[in-house]
Simulated scan of single mutants.
Amino acid sequence: MKCFVIAATLLAVAPALAVEAAPPAPAASPVAPAAAPEKANASAIPSAADLLFEQPQLKNAAAGTTLTYDYLRRSGIAKGPFGPPLDDTIKLTLEPGKGGDGRNIGVEMFSGTNRFPAGPFEDMPGNPVIPLFLENHLTNLARVLQANPRYLKLAIRKGLRDGATVTPIKVDYKGRTVDAWQVVTKPFAGDALAQRMRGMDNMTYTFVTSPEVPGEIISIEAQSKNTEGGELLEERLSYDQKAG
Rank of each mutant, 00 (worst) to 15 (best):
L51H: 04
R74L: 15
R161D: 08
D101S: 09
K59N: 11
G230M: 12
R176G: 11
P117A: 11
T209S: 11
I169W: 09
D50A: 13
K174W: 08
A8T: 08
A7M: 05
M203D: 01
G64C: 11
M200I: 05
R236E: 09
A27N: 05
V183W: 04
M1P: 12
F133P: 02
S111F: 07
L232Y: 06
V208C: 03
E212I: 08
D50Y: 03
D101I: 00
I217F: 12
F4V: 03
E212C: 08
K186C: 06
P96L: 01
A16D: 08
A180C: 11
P96G: 09
A22S: 09
T204Y: 02
S43A: 14
G190M: 12
N136Q: 11
L134Y: 08
T167N: 07
S75G: 12
P46Y: 14
T65S: 15
D123N: 15
L72M: 12
L11F: 07
E20A: 10
E216L: 02
D88R: 02
P15K: 13
T89I: 12
E235P: 12
M124N: 06
A18H: 05
E231P: 01
R73L: 15
V183P: 03
P23Q: 09
S29L: 13
V107D: 06
M124E: 15
I77M: 15
N127G: 04
A49C: 04
A32S: 13
A164L: 06
N148A: 11
T113K: 15
L72C: 11
A36N: 04
P125N: 05
L17D: 02
D50Q: 12
A25G: 06
L11Q: 13
A164W: 03
D88W: 05
K186P: 02
S238N: 10
D191P: 06
L152N: 03
A22P: 03
G190S: 12
G126D: 11
A8D: 14
L233Y: 07
R143Q: 13
R157V: 00
E212Q: 15
R150F: 09
P30A: 09
Y239M: 02
P81I: 05
T139W: 09
G230P: 11
K170I: 08
P187N: 10
L138V: 08
A8P: 00
Y239R: 07
T165A: 15
N148H: 11
A8K: 13
L51K: 03
